[in-house]
Amino acid sequence: MQRLFIPVLILTAAMFAYSPVAIASAPYESTMLLVQKIFYYHFPAWMALTAAVTVCFVSSGIYLFKGHAWADRLGFAAAEVTVIFGMFGLVSGSVWGRKAWGVWWQWDARLTMAFLLELIFIGYLLVRKYGGPGSEKLAAAMGIFGGATAPFVYKSVDWWRTIHPKTSVMASLGETSPEMWYVVWFCTAIFLMLSGLLLAARMRLETLRAGLDRLYLAAED
């Protein structure tokens, strides 16, 4: 884990530096033209969020039922990463919406659900910070309920009539526009690696903090 960190960091940075070139070389979308380029960071941000939510959901479950301290720390780290990418996804979506739909925000099903998911994980962080002793379990419950909400966010565009594009856009992109498809997944790989790096860094920080607490306790005895 430790040895992989630096090489992956370098690789991510190099790919990230190249990504504007790749995005510029992708063909223009027929109706939105230049505006559609936001998509190459918008979709990957939500993919990174999905990965982080999944990690948080699973590790919260492990912590609740098995009580491993590492699972609690991983869930905490994943919740922070979720909030960061959710924020990025909401902001990038809002900027895109301003140009594509003419408004910054629209109360449609997908946007509302995504906003709720972000709220749930901000709630998770608030509980961790201000909940006092025993808040780890509360936070784990938030992680589980937040994880249960995530599929609703994903499917909301297919269940309701919304102005947000449906999930089928991504599924058919490989056939309709292979060049776009390739660039999107290139950027998604960057964002997934970035979320992995952030998770590893946060995890290490929490582990060190737990170790420090142990030392303090030992010194007091």
């Binding site: 709720l116 709220l119 709630g123 608030l126 509980v127 201000y130 938030m142 309920f145």
Partner: peptide
């Protein structure tokens, strides 16, 4: 904490 946790989940 109760409203903070409860409302986002039950919206």
């Amino acid at each position: 904490m109760l409203p903070i946790l409860l409302y986002p989940i039950t919206i």
